[in-house]
Design a protein around this nucleic acid. Structure first.
Length: 389
RNA sequence: GGCCUCAUCGUCUAGUGGUUAGGACACGAGCUUCUCAAGCUCGGAACCGGAGUCCGAUUCUCCGUGAGGUCACCA
């Protein structure tokens, strides 16, 4: 790449399913690379297959990209570009690089030669295309197939870098052949490894959450999602693990992309998410925590308390009862409760209070619990504990 | 099966022709009167195998093995 060339990348999903994390990560790498190099991003919907393409999926892809914060500069659908493909098919028929076979489909005339290309993440890769048959480029003059549509669109959009999943490696020689047949410039290729399921098999919907919307629905932060996705198969060469989007753009480079596939680990995603949560303003954190808490079982349904767990350490039942009665009167005034707790011993008051509210040895702090439960329910739970004592 | 690609802790990874092979997540242990599903400290845990090159290979080469991808009128 020389300095005069403007980088153009593409994000080309096919609307045949919900936007999954593998495609999202490839989209992210394209995004980071383009933004880092002040380039352009073309977002195109590959919907040449009319049977399998659905509007619902297209909408999901658009929403998911927006949620992740991956924006783009140009947008189009292949289904709206029939005239353009037609022009190229005619050209190929004219220059004899394609022909109409007996079965009426349009086939590419394979020149059967060796194709070598320099992959930006894997180095030199060579194929012998005599292993391939005369593959079909269009069902008819008005119905182009994948390989042709990709080559034409990349050419027309001036794409300079094709950054895609490594399942595209074996498609590359075919596409290079087509580029030569229609007189298109060959873009630079970068094949990134795939995201794998825990058993190292291909990720599929059967293995649980795999689409971006699943993670959005679970409450993950978009900034945590792109942070974690970026780290799967790429690293900055330093020990930094938590990044803002701007930092990712700043530090991204294709050279640091890994060659082998990576297993998606939700545990680590959870950790990255917590780290991003900590960086949010305190009020926002509190609000999020409270609304997440309301979904918890022990908040929805009153827990059963174990009498022996109510008192803190060796504090007597009588004293604990006294503390809880005082706190009961103060519910609604967190500062007053805290002041009281500091006066008579924080653990003496806060442990039984927290336990009365949650019924758990470990839980969020009592003030957050009260906020999630509301004043009335908090008071009844405290009363219940007092009764037991 | 043909072709292509890949191979460091359980997972994500750093790294080098000579290192106590580093970090993070997860896991285990311990500590902590409690705004405790947290925090802190400590710990166990890896260079797929075999040849070759070399004074010396985890690192370079070759061969195995394993894994993945791809071989559609899908993309």
């Amino acid at each position: 790449m020389n300095n005069l060339e403007k980088v153009v990348v593409r994000i080309p999903p096919s609307p045949t399913g919900y936007f999954h994390i593998g495609r999202a990560r490839t989209a992210l790498f394209n995004y980071l690379f383009a933004r880092k190099n002040k380039g352009k991003i073309v977002f195109r919907i590959e919907d040449t297959d009319k049977e399998r393409s659905k509007k619902e999926y297209e909408e999901d892809i658009i929403e998911s990209l927006e949620w992740l914060g991956i924006d783009y500069d140009d947008f189009y659908r292949q289904s709206e570009r029939g005239e353009i493909y037609k022009k190229y098919i005619e050209k190929m028929l004219d220059n004899n690089s394609a022909y109409v076979a007996e079965d009426e489909v349009i086939r590419f005339k394979n020149p059967n030669r060796k194709i070598k290309f320099d992959d930006l993440v894997r180095g030199e890769i060579e194929f012998d295309t005599s292993d391939l048959e005369d593959f079909i480029v269009a069902k008819s003059i008005n119905e182009p197939l994948y390989h042709l549509a990709v080559v034409v669109d990349d050419h027309e959009s001036g794409v300079t870098h094709v950054i895609r999943g490594d399942d595209g490696i074996s498609n590359t020689p075919r596409q290079i052949l087509l580029q030569e047949a229609v007189g298109a410039v060959r873009p630079r290729y970068a094949h990134v490894p795939m995201i794998l399921a825990p058993d190292r098999s291909k990720l599929s919907a059967r293995q649980g959450a795999t689409s971006i919307r699943d993670f959005r629905d679970k409450g993950y932060l978009p900034q945590a999602m792109i942070n974690y996705l970026a780290l799967l198969g790429w690293n900055p060469g330093t020990e930094q693990e938590i990044f803002t989007k701007e930092e990712l753009i700043e530090q991204f480079s294709l050279e640091k992309i890994q060659k082998s596939g990576a297993i998606f680990d939700e545990k680590k995603l959870q950790w990255v998410n917590r780290e991003h949560l900590k960086r949010l303003p305190a009020e926002v954190q509190k609000e999020r925590q409270i609304s997440a808490l309301r979904e918890e079982l022990y908040i929805k349904k009153r827990p059963t308390l174990d009498v022996s767990s109510i008192c803190w350490n060796d504090i007597s039942k009588e004293n604990t009862k006294k503390y809880l009665e005082k706190v009961k009167e103060l519910v609604g005034d967190d500062d007053a409760i805290m002041k009281y707790a500091e006066k008579v011993g924080k653990g003496n008051v806060l442990w039984p209070l927290r336990y009365a509210l949650s019924g758990l040895e470990k839980s969020p702090d009592p003030f957050t619990l009260m906020a999630a439960l509301g004043k009335d329910e908090s008071i009844s739970r405290i009363e219940k504990a007092i009764q037991l004592l």
